[in-house]
Nucleic acid binder design. Structure first.
Lengths: 201, 201, 201, 201
DNA sequence: AGATAATCGAGACGGTACGTCCCGTCTTGCT
DNA sequence: AGCAAGACGGGACGTACCGTCTCGATTATCT
């Protein structure tokens, strides 16, 4: 989100001049607090307290808990979007899965992501913001991997991209985030082989 | 949970006699409240208010929000576990996926399940209770489908059951609960074909 | 104020049942807090904190700082109204002055009274409440002393009561509360003689 | 206070040069603010706002609310000290009382004086400053009236000066500032007669 | 006259209190 | 004894200010 109205730092003319170090402290505190109590119980007061700031410092930057969440979560999620290009479909998929698992294993992500996800079922606006800010770009990026494989002739031209994308991430997410079952060393390798077989079928 | 200490109904001699209609009203109110505000913001007071009861009526039955959640959620989840046996692997899998999708589409489930799931990342005891109460029995049930297919010769004897189970549910969960993307009419059919191809690879 | 709507204790039917010990703790805390920071800076939060109570406990009893002040101050002031009757004008006046000085010397009174007095210049409603609740009854009581002296023949029938009442208390108040100048042992005696001389003139 | 370190105007070489118009605007704003909200609630921010100045402009001149109060109040009080000399005791006393009443009736004085007085009970330093800056000079001035009357033979040489001074102002202060009771046209005249009678007794 | 420095207004900072609402605990009658 | 009702201490809400401190822009003196 490169053109958002820049809540921190100097705004064009006449705007308030917020201090960046305070902004950074609030962002850090927000994620820590979100991870430890969840979206529902997250209080602005606790975020400010954890950051060593006053409540007004928060409200000067974001009008509400939801606005703060949408901005910071989208911002953070976008950093992680990148399509691997290792030269072969097998290597690309294995790498993609490994990166997904690494991200989902991060203590902050593993606590925050399911929490925000759950909140989207209850909060239309948050859902729109997060889905269009995270899901769509990530999905488009992953599609690149498949299109490159088609160009290289590793996949047939009529490959079911939609289903392929679902296979690409869902098992990893399922094991790590949903059923919370540990993953063998060879799991990624076996998974990659099966995914390619499924896409070729 | 067949041997739990029966919080409702008449206890052995000398115990308190709680009124079953109050208990039932509280259970219903609990799920409605959980669906509408989430686990984090769920309050005993709101449950009691919705049930038209006093707060003490809740605390007489369950010592805490967590205990109430563990008991009622496990209780509800166990009702839904059943393995299809349609005669062919293809039909079994398609049926299993359809049933999963139907369950996940239920308004109460679609709001409550991700919410409790998110809470497990923060709450070890709740995690243990829900995973062993829901995940394990469901997974054992699904394994039956695959073992029957092996016996029928539809799958090789060395089929990777672990991976197969992951493929069986993860794409459906992924689309419905995570990326909240609508599902074509033919999706289940195409998905079933791919899953079988993957398991045979 | 015997017919006020009883903020503490049981109200007629259906009213809230407030706990008297909490009410008493709040009253004590109110006077201590008023004495230590003054009316202007007195905060409900500090009163509650000092009483070990929640803010809601205060607001359940009084709707505002001013209402709390009017009720508690009037209530307290009325307890101290009493006209001496020693048998002679000299003794009555000396006694009245001594009682006034004792009251004004009380640490709580000496801090609170001038403070509330100052506030009346700014707050019409508080002024009305305090003046009619304190000034008028006290003045009527003091008038009794003079009327009895007239009946006894110690003062002429046309004594200027109005002026007499002013002489009765103003020097004592002036020295203790205004110019804060210490008072000799013989001061009351000399003052009494002069007051009687003035009234007879 | 003739030797105070001149917070406004040019200081010796090297000192800061404060703008006198800003200083004057702050002084005016201070008294207006003091009259309208009282000492306890008076805030530097409100003074600066009323003066159309920044908060720093105040703090550059006075280190604290109390220092500002002590300086400005003492400064203002000293202007009003003057002993009448009309030729007779009766005329002097009547004039003194009238001047006192006029001063106490001034809207700013009637709000500010009792307020600062009340604050002295809580604030030793303010008490010292105001009492020695106002009470003492005023009392010495009033004593002149009585000494001149003794020299003229209107009062006996052993007149109780201490008590006389108390009689001179306390009733006026009492009626105007304490019991806030209106004063007849003839009140000053009757009061003057009684005071003289008391002093001669 | 131009350089330099201090004062200016404005306002962000960490705080505190506001009056309201709601939490889980506990108490009080009524059924 | 179980029930609803609700007072209790506590805590968070979002707002309004507080005194402190930091900004450029302006102004006033000193080379």
């Amino acid at each position: 989100m490169t053109s958002r109205p820049a809540p921190a730092g100097k705004r064009p003319p006449g705007g308030p001049v917020l201090q960046q170090d305070v902004t950074r402290a609030l962002e850090t505190a927000f994620f820590e607090e979100l991870a430890s109590v969840g979206y529902g119980k997250l209080s602005i007061e606790a975020v400010a307290r954890r950051a060593g700031a006053g409540k007004a410092a928060v409200y000067r930057r974001w009008p509400s808990k939801q606005a703060m969440t949408v901005e910071l979560a989208s911002q953070a999620a976008l950093k992680a979007v990148r399509a691997p290009d290792m030269g072969s479909l097998h290597a690309d998929i294995a790498q993609f899965i490994r990166e997904t698992m690494t991200a989902l294993s991060h203590p902050l992500v593993s606590r925050i992501a399911p929490d925000l996800l759950a909140e989207t079922a209850r909060n239309e606006e948050l859902a729109d913001a997060l889905l269009s800010g995270i899901r769509t770009p990530r999905r488009e990026n992953a599609a690149l991997v498949l299109h490159r494989a088609i160009e290289r002739g590793e996949l047939p031209a009529d490959t079911d991209i939609e289903l392929g994308l679902d296979f690409l991430v869902s098992p990893a997410y399922w094991r790590l985030a949903v059923i919370r079952t540990p993953v063998d060393d060879g799991y990624v390798e076996r998974l990659t082989v099966k995914i390619i077989a499924a896409m070729k079928a």
